[in-house]
Simulated assay, not measured.
Amino acid sequence: MYSMKKYIPNQHGAWAMLVLPFLFGVAASSWQPIHIPLFICWLLIYLFSFPLLQGVKTGKFERYEKPLKVYGILLLPIIVHLVITEPALLWFVLPLVPLFAVNLYYAKAKNERALLNDISAILAFCLIIYPVFYVGQGESWRTAAELFLLAVLYFVGTALYVKTIIRERKNIHFYYGSVLYHLLVAAAGLFLFPSLIVPLLILLLRAAILPRTAITAKRTGLIEIGFSLMLYVSVLVLYF
């Protein structure tokens, strides 16, 4: 039986980055039927990129040939459908190219845990807000930009916070850097997102308290789903 590990990404935190910005884009506009194939396309692009990056990292593309073919075959007709339906979507692909090039570089260097690689991936994931907003016939690009900024700030903070629990658990300087980052985001939130100051303060407390406990990496990932949901609900209830 062919290993599912070659088909399913093992980066659990990426699933929140895949979904939350997409939902932000829908929230900033209005739901349209085209959002369904757009999300399927976005999901398949992520699934396709996983074996591609693994192939670049290991240099053994033959090990990932089957998932690349499966996801590529599924992806192609959806891309064709979206381009025919909304040709302008091609413009939203352009900023993703250099960001993915950074991911390819770090995969080749076998240094995928580098913070710059994380930030590049975060920016790519969060940029989905804009095409989702566009096909949702949104009216306020400022709102889309604010939610893009919120998503980037949140996920960069999450990347720092998770590192203080796993790879940088014993690095007190990294811990203080993470807490300082969250403190600055909360302070900036007073001006940028005043209605969201409570969830931003909760995220600050998360970054300050949880790394000082014996929390495991697995439990961290599960709890982070709750924090992502908290932020999404807060945006729906408090931001709009």
Rank of each mutant, 00 (worst) to 15 (best):
residue 2 Y to N: 14
residue 4 M to H: 12
residue 5 K to C: 02
residue 7 Y to S: 04
residue 10 N to T: 13
residue 18 L to V: 10
residue 18 L to C: 12
residue 19 V to N: 08
residue 19 V to W: 10
residue 20 L to T: 12
residue 22 F to W: 08
residue 24 F to W: 09
residue 27 A to E: 13
residue 31 W to E: 03
residue 34 I to S: 04
residue 34 I to C: 01
residue 40 I to N: 06
residue 43 L to F: 15
residue 46 Y to L: 03
residue 48 F to W: 11
residue 54 Q to M: 13
residue 55 G to V: 02
residue 56 V to D: 04
residue 58 T to M: 07
residue 59 G to K: 11
residue 60 K to F: 12
residue 68 L to W: 03
residue 72 G to E: 11
residue 73 I to Q: 07
residue 76 L to H: 03
residue 77 P to F: 10
residue 80 V to R: 09
residue 82 L to N: 12
residue 82 L to G: 10
residue 88 A to P: 00
residue 90 L to H: 05
residue 90 L to A: 15
residue 92 F to L: 09
residue 99 L to S: 04
residue 99 L to I: 05
residue 104 L to M: 13
residue 109 A to G: 05
residue 109 A to W: 09
residue 113 R to H: 12
residue 115 L to C: 07
residue 115 L to M: 15
residue 117 N to M: 13
residue 126 C to M: 11
residue 129 I to H: 04
residue 130 Y to C: 07
residue 137 Q to H: 15
residue 142 R to K: 11
residue 143 T to L: 14
residue 143 T to C: 08
residue 149 L to W: 11
residue 150 L to R: 07
residue 152 V to E: 01
residue 153 L to E: 08
residue 155 F to H: 11
residue 164 T to R: 02
residue 164 T to C: 12
residue 164 T to K: 01
residue 172 I to R: 14
residue 175 Y to A: 08
residue 177 G to D: 06
residue 178 S to G: 06
residue 181 Y to V: 13
residue 193 F to E: 04
residue 197 I to Y: 01
residue 204 L to A: 01
residue 204 L to E: 09
residue 206 R to D: 11
residue 207 A to K: 00
residue 207 A to D: 01
residue 208 A to G: 06
residue 210 L to G: 00
residue 216 T to M: 01
residue 217 A to P: 06
residue 225 I to R: 04
residue 231 L to W: 10
residue 231 L to K: 02
residue 232 Y to H: 04
residue 235 V to M: 01
residue 236 L to E: 06
residue 237 V to L: 09
residue 240 F to K: 15
